[in-house]
């Protein structure tokens, strides 16, 4: 158990799933975005002081198997409900980042009784009424990275994550992530037209966190989530881009910890 977490495979929902797991306490499931699982970063380490944190590679991403039947984000949501059952988890706190936020919202509306709290961070999933969700598949990796941050210099792990040229193995994983992301989010791009209506079913405590300068998913989407999820809290982080947990981990952890 290096650095307080394990990196193992679990057989859930008839799928071999890679899972990072660490910490003690109530379960906190963290769902990664279209770029894949960035690993056990500072924010996860901090949150693991209070929670048992689970960060899986989604099916078809990273090192997890790819079941043939998963072709959409709602499919992925069905997968995770099954997986949580197999892991014996209930009353879960779930936090989704970007595409993972969309996924978390789909899971919550499918089975609200399973979730204690919901955190949506720069979440895709709803169509903005102003602006567009950036088409990440049209961008080169360098262009995409540049768009994700407001100011990379304030991201303490930036060098570690983006500083070096990817190894062939990393490149291969990146290709795989990109393919799976395209498979499940291509059309309608990065949103589910049903979702705003379904969100109105939710009663669970929900926190919506967004970077004011998010250049991937417009802040307008944060407002749409906020309007449709009754009693939700909205926190906009100033001077911050699409990935608050990486760009401003300390501030992000403070905001989220208070809510969780």
């Amino acid at each position: 158990m290096a650095d307080g977490y394990t990196d193992t495979f679990v057989e859930v929902a008839e799928t071999n799933l890679r899972l990072l797991r660490g910490g003690q306490g109530e379960p906190l499931l963290i769902l990664h975005g279209a770029g894949g699982n960035r690993g056990w970063l500072r924010y996860a380490q901090s949150l693991s002081r209070r929670f048992q944190v689970y960060i899986p590679d989604h099916p078809g991403f990273g090192k997890s198997d790819q079941p043939e039947w998963i072709a959409s984000v709602p499919d992925l949501a069905c997968f995770y409900l099954w997986a949580l059952e197999d892991l014996g988890l209930s009353r879960v706190r779930v936090m989704g980042l970007s595409m993972g936020g969309w996924l978390a919202a789909e899971m919550a509306v499918l089975c609200p009784q399973l979730f204690e709290r919901l955190v949506l961070v720069g979440a895709a999933g709803v169509k903005p009424t102003q602006g567009e969700i950036t088409d990440i598949f049209l961008l080169s990796p360098a262009e995409l990275t540049a768009k994700m941050f407001h100011d990379p210099k304030q991201a303490p792990e930036y060098e570690q994550l983006y500083g070096a040229q990817p190894t062939p193995e990393e490149q291969d994983l990146r290709t795989r992530n990109n393919e799976m992301a395209a498979r499940i989010t291509w059309k309608p791009y990065m949103h589910d037209p049903r979702l705003p209506s379904l969100l109105r079913r939710l009663r669970m405590p929900t926190l919506i966190v967004w970077g004011r300068e998010d250049a991937i998913v417009p802040v307008n989407c944060a407002e749409i989530y906020h309007q449709n999820i009754r009693g939700s809290q909205l926190v906009i982080m100033e001077q911050c881009g699409h990935v608050p947990p990486i760009e401003k981990p300390q501030q992000f952890v403070n905001i989220v910890s208070e809510f969780l």
Binding site: F137, L138, L139, S140, D172, T175, N178, E179, A181, A182, R183
Partner: peptide, 14 residues
């Protein structure tokens, strides 16, 4: 043109 135009995700096998 950009590589993404000619090789969108999954279009070309590895």
């Amino acid at each position: 043109g950009p590589q993404a135009y000619f090789a969108p995700p999954g279009y070309v096998s590895r």
